[in-house]
């Protein structure tokens, strides 16, 4: 289960994470290592808590037990200031981009700079335009978020996420709702950022074909645990029922088709069948 990696190579180390939400065990003693400088994809059926896992990593949510060490710091124990200090080094790409609707594209990308630094305006302008150039949207600097397409908004959000040159970027469903062109643009960006800046990336996504083109490793999460782990092309054939169902796209399997329910015949009001 645990990749044989030395501590220096591991940016995020999760040990025994247990979280109960609304009486349901989302994570059950989950262990996960995310290597530095690699692109790790976290996959799994809907509702298994992939986004929740990202929220744990950024300290937006706290588990009931377990440790989450990011860059050697245990997130649940950090003070507010230390947590905010850590977050400045983490980029986060929201599924719906989460651009600030009050500001135009330029100000959205400049927002973290303005809030955390007292840089001169010229420097802010240069940094922002550099990042916008990197995502190919320098010309859209004065558009408002409402004027952007979904793919453009996501690229702006990516520019904003990397404006501080973070050590880690978390992508929450970056491919949802993108047309093939936009999808390829985002894929290219993720790859480029990882290769040129050495940024560790964690992807949460469903699109296997897209992930196979970009990820270095895939972790399959189900029932609150990591059920499979491996390189993008080998994991399909590791023989576990989870991978077979997930990657094979079978309707029924370890993930049942039926949501847990009472006896069907009883629910319909039929007399119980005699055993």
């Amino acid at each position: 289960m645990n990749a044989a990696a030395s501590p220096d190579d591991t940016l995020i180390r999760i040990r025994g994470l247990t979280t109960v939400l609304n009486g349901k065990k989302v994570f059950d003693a989950l262990d996960l290592d995310i290597p530095r400088g690699k692109i790790t994809a976290i996959m799994g059926p809907s509702g298994t808590g992939k986004t929740t896992l990202l929220k744990h990593i950024t300290g937006q949510m706290h588990g009931d037990a377990g440790q989450i060490a990011v860059d050697g710091k245990n997130v649940p124990e950090l003070s507010r200031e230390a947590l905010y200090g850590l977050r400045e080094k983490i980029g986060y790409l929201f599924q719906n981009s989460a651009l600030l609707t009050d500001f135009d594209v330029f100000e959205n990308v400049a927002f973290p700079l303005r809030q955390h630094t007292r840089l001169p305006e010229v420097l802010i302008r240069n940094i922002v335009l550099t990042k916008l150039q990197a995502v190919g949207l320098r010309g859209a600097a004065r558009l408002m978020p409402s004027e952007l397409s979904g793919g453009m908004a996501r690229r702006v959000a990516l520019a904003r996420a990397i404006v501080f040159d973070p050590m880690l970027i978390l992508y929450d469903e970056p491919f949802v709702g993108l047309d093939p062109i936009a999808l390829n643009q985002v894929l290219k960006l993720i790859r480029t950022l990882n290769e040129t800046l050495g940024i560790t990336s964690v992807l949460v996504a469903h699109e296997l074909s897209a992930i196979q083109r970009v990820a270095d490793r895939i972790c399959l999460i189900a029932n609150g645990k990591i059920v499979a782990e491996g390189d993008p092309h080998g994991i399909e054939n590791d023989g576990s029922p989870w991978t077979r169902q997930f990657f094979g796209g079978e309707a029924d399997g370890p993930v049942p088709f039926q949501y847990p329910a009472g006896d069907y015949a009883e629910a319909l009001g039929f007399p119980r069948a005699k055993a």
Partner: peptide, 8 residues
């Protein structure tokens, strides 16, 4: 949430 994650 985005603000929280941008440490604002």
């Amino acid at each position: 949430a985005a603000m929280e994650l941008m440490a604002v």
